[in-house]
Write a protein that binds this DNA or RNA. Structure first.
Length: 664
RNA sequence: GCCGCCUUAGCUCAGUCGGCCAGAGCAACGCACUCGUAAUGCGUAGGUCGUGGGUUCGAUUCCCACAGGCGGCUCCA
């Protein structure tokens, strides 16, 4: 024993400790929830031997980093199980992801659900065996020799250090910063090596830490290193948590998301459908979905007009020249429906509205006094989305955009962007979404896609700076999205969190210096010169379809009264009381309330059930007691009641809830 | 677009290891019941088993193609 090595442990208040040579991180921490350590800022295994002067911090399994390590270790156990069952399976990569992990394999046959169950059994045994993860530094030659039968790992060794920024998950296997290659041996208690994998680590000390908190979830194909040019591998996804209870909570969250699925609720609530006869990604709105759509449109249109927008209308198809002028065709022809030829011209279904708005702008001379000129419409666009990406209302081929274009002077641009951002946030709040962050999508500065962006470096820099400034001034969190810009300019997008914490891209605001030039747009300035306006694109809901899908999931189908397809259903306790309710319904209808009275010959409790399941916000019940008191009784979706409310008061309550867009 | 899985009544699902008239619940319709807070009872009707081709004495069942859906990958102006 040799006294030396002072250590600082910030978690324990920058305490300096003196330990013996050979002390490992594990020796420093008693707490069993510590799974790895941060040594001088770098995550290390608990078996890491500390050196003189090292700053060592504990990393709990419950922290983001600790969870990632736990999940990555679980991915190793999965890979070990796969190769145990099928030694011919070749290894891809196995990084942690949100809530879990995956591992990619090159196998002859795709995995079946039965395979996953068999793998879980093997994994459970490995976990129970308590195998240790042992780190071993190897030279490149050693690694190549040991992994000679793993072609994908060899490829990663070759890439070592070469990959930077390419976030394809490869960095979990080799460390691009240190250039050091390591292999992790999974060692049984008797010291024999059960399995090994090229991996930068770190890992939990033993497989026992995985306990009962994991599960394989699904299998799917994935391209090697994320490019469709590469081989297709079979990916297995799993989830892993520190405890069984946390796993269960996660599975419950998944189940809740499934209950809210807008595709399922759309059928149950009779809102919309996707007839095969129309083709993929082309929804139809049934009367009840039509009410929601109309309320969304009516409200959005009114608010746009209040904010200074002019409502316009444009056709669904156009001759191709327009999209050459705008610059869309060379870039996006493959995501547009193919052209129709008539009278010697090629016509395209429109995939965007802006070129048509430009024609409205250009239809007469414009003065600086006209600016900002704000054109707005619900424009129907059609995009040939690849068949595999169509998803309910959130990814469709025919959609209605609440699309606006503000034409402004360069000086007005920052103010207009601010105006638009405030407007869209207010609009989203009116629909009950109130938790946001922003994303700033910029040009890809280096990658192979840089060529898709048009305009000069100076223009991009100026436009990006303006958007960044407005975004920062909003006070909302701002997340960079390099490479996410449209070809004609950078954009801010508003991401909204729904009731169960998922985020959705909603509104976008794009700064466009390209189209005004391509269309030769101009205005006459105060000094008589002709100037080019800047164009700012903005969609508030993104698309009506998508936003409706998001709202269905956000509210789980239980819309606030102002959006509810049927706002009130009157249910008589017995048929004798139906006329009384009809009278109340007539008065509500006069005030614009969507109300029905259930005069079917279902029994009373059945009617309650029927309309509660339909998520009608107000059930108005009347029986002898109510009639005698000139009152009605409320029943709400959660089963609560408010009985014997005077009719005047009941009507006022309903009208008020709709007027204020309250949730009930 | 790629990989895998799936498609039976309006909805949710049984079923046929290739063989007489393919079943259930809910919904719909009819009759009876007139009822105070999540399913009254009885009855009727509803399917060329996604579409097209092939194998077979015979196909909803097996094979192929296509369409649509689901889960991922890739993509998302």
């Amino acid at each position: 024993m040799r006294p030396s090595e002072p250590l600082a442990d910030p978690a324990a208040g920058e305490e300096k400790r003196t330990v013996t040579t050979g002390t490992t991180c594990a020796d420093l921490f008693e707490d069993r929830s510590i799974v790895v350590a941060r040594v001088n800022g770098v995550l290390r295994d608990l078996a890491h031997v500390v050196a003189d002067g090292d700053v060592v911090e504990p990393v709990s399994v419950s922290s983001d980093e600790g969870l990632a390590v736990l999940r990555h270790s679980c991915a190793h156990v999965l890979a070990q199980a796969v190769q145990e069952i099928n030694p011919a399976a070749r290894l891809g990569i196995g990084p942690p992801v949100r809530d879990g992990f995956y591992y990619d394999f090159d196998v002859e046959q795709p995995f079946t659900p039965e395979d996953l169950r068999a793998l879980e059994k093997v994994m459970a045994r490995i976990v129970k065996e308590g195998q240790s993860f042992r780190r071993r530094v190897v030279s490149e030659d050693e690694a190549r020799a040991e992994l000679a039968s793993e072609p994908y790992k060899l490829e990663l060794i070759g890439l070592k250090g070469a990959t930077s920024g390419d976030d394809d998950g490869a960095s979990v296997e080799v460390d691009p910063t240190s250039g050091e290659l390591t292999i992790y041996d999974n060692t049984r208690r008797d010291g024999s090596v059960a399995w090994k994998d090229l991996c930068r680590g770190p890992h939990v000390p033993t497989t026992r830490l995985l306990a009962n908190g994991w599960q394989l979830t699904r299998s799917a194909a994935a391209y090697w290193r994320g490019s469709e040019k590469n081989a297709s591998l079979q990916r297995i996804y799993g989830t892993a948590w520190p405890t069984k209870d946390e796993l269960k909570a996660h599975l419950d969250r998944i189940a809740e998301a499934e209950r809210r699925d807008h595709r399922k609720l759309g059928i149950e609530l009779d809102l919309y459908s996707f007839p095969d006869e129309l083709g993929s990604g082309l929804p139809v709105f049934h009367p009840k979905g039509g009410v929601i759509k109309r309320e969304m449109e009516d409200y959005a249109r009114r608010r746009h007009i209040e904010e200074g927008f002019l409502y316009v209308g444009t056709p669904h198809i156009t001759k191709e020249g327009l999209f050459h002028t705008s610059g869309h065709l060379p870039y996006y022809a493959d995501t547009m429906f193919p052209p129709m030829t008539m009278e010697g011209s090629d016509y395209y279904l429109k995939a965007m509205n802006c070129p048509m708005h430009n024609l409205i702008y250009r239809s007469r001379g414009r003065s600086y006094r006209d600016l900002p000129l704000r054109l707005f419409e619900f424009g129907h666009v059609y995009r040939y989305e690849k068949s595999g990406v169509i998803h309910g209302l959130t990814r469709v081929r025919g959609l209605e955009m609440d699309d606006s274009h503000s034409y402004v002077t360069a000086e007005q641009a920052p103010g207009e962007i601010k105006h638009l951002l405030n407007f869209v946030l207010g609009l989203l709040r009116d629909f009950g979404m109130d938790d946001f962050y922003l994303e700033l999508s910029t040009r890809d500065e280096t990658g192979d896609k840089k060529g898709k962006f048009i305009g000069s470096d100076e223009q991009w820099a100026a436009a990006t700076a303006i958007l960044a400034q407005v975004a920062e001034e909003s006070g909302l969190d701002l997340v960079p999205d390099p490479g996410g810009a449209a070809f004609y300019g950078p954009k801010i997008s508003v991401q909204a969190r729904d009731a169960i914490g998922r985020t959705w891209q909603m509104s976008t605001i794009q700064y466009d210096f390209n189209q005004p030039e391509r269309f030769g747009l101009e205005y006459q300035a105060a000094d008589g010169t002709r100037q080019q306006p800047v164009m700012i694109h903005s969609a508030k809901f993104g698309s009506i379809e998508r936003f409706m899908g998001v709202l269905v999931e956000h509210y789980a189908g239980a819309f606030p009264p102002w959006l509810a397809p049927v706002q009130v259903v009157g249910i008589p306790v017995a048929a004798d009381f139906a006329p009384y309710l009809q009278g109340i319904a007539d008065r509500l209808r006069e005030k614009g309330i969507r109300v029905e009275v259930d005069i079917s010959d279902d029994r009373f409790p059945k009617k309650i059930r029927t309309h509660t399941k339909a998520k009608v916000p107000f059930l108005l019940i009347a029986g002898g007691d109510d009639v005698a008191a000139d009152a009605v009784s409320f029943r709400f979706r959660d089963g609560s009641q408010d009985n014997g409310i005077p009719v005047e008061q009941a009507i006022e309550r309903i009208v008020e809830a709709v007027r204020t867009r309250a949730q009930v």
